[in-house]
């Protein structure tokens, strides 16, 4: 049951990713990207990452894409007459490079994590049942990764100050 469902979400994600990079209007591009993010959230649920799926919808599809749409609206880029695609040589180059990269990354399909690191099947599902979807992440986040977590808050503060300074007309 999970595999067909996975391919439905995966197919939608790939299709909308393709639409995102080919649409002329930035608004259409942004909406297709939101569609990709939603189907990725579906895939995350299938991969036992319910909390990340919720965060994906709230932060990525919600907050980040709203900033994008807001800037598109602010700069009034909604209706573009001419396409901004590069010319034919550039298209062929990126087609070749993209195909090569896909083929190279497809080797990952053969990857199997080493036996001594791999958890027995269904461990994540039982962990979610025991600790809850949030508890499962909170445990390593606030024990092993507490310093990176605190540094992230400094990063976000710097980003807020930087965004205000950059976008302000006169300081």
């Amino acid at each position: 049951m999970t595999l067909p469902l996975f391919w439905v979400f995966g197919g939608i994600a790939i299709l909308s990713g393709f639409m995102c990079i080919t649409r002329r209007s930035p608004v259409a591009s942004a909406l297709w990207l939101i569609q990709t993010m939603f189907s990725l959230a579906g895939i995350y649920v299938l991969l036992d990452a319910q909390f990340i799926a919720v965060i994906q919808v709230l932060v990525y599809a919600g907050a980040i894409m709203v900033i994008f749409l807001f800037v598109i609206m602010l700069l009034n880029l909604g209706r573009t007459k001419t396409t901004d695609m590069v010319g034919r040589p550039g298209q062929i180059t990126s087609l070749v490079l993209g195909t090569l990269m896909t083929l190279e990354l497809f080797v990952l399909n053969k990857v199997i994590p080493a036996e001594q690191f791999r958890l027995p099947e269904g461990t994540m599902a039982t962990m979610t049942d025991e600790m809850g979807a949030v508890g499962m992440i909170a445990e390593p986040l606030f024990r092993g990764y507490i310093v990176p977590f605190e540094i992230t808050s400094v990063l976000l503060l710097a980003a807020v100050v930087g965004a205000v300074v950059l976008a302000k007309r006169k300081i």
């Binding site: 995966g10 994600a13 790939i14 990713g17 896909t102 990354l105 497809f106 990857v111």
Partner: peptide, 11 residues
């Protein structure tokens, strides 16, 4: 998952 990830990254 890695296939979908590879295709999306290349896109």
């Amino acid at each position: 998952s890695l296939i979908v990830s590879a295709v999306l990254f290349s896109l």
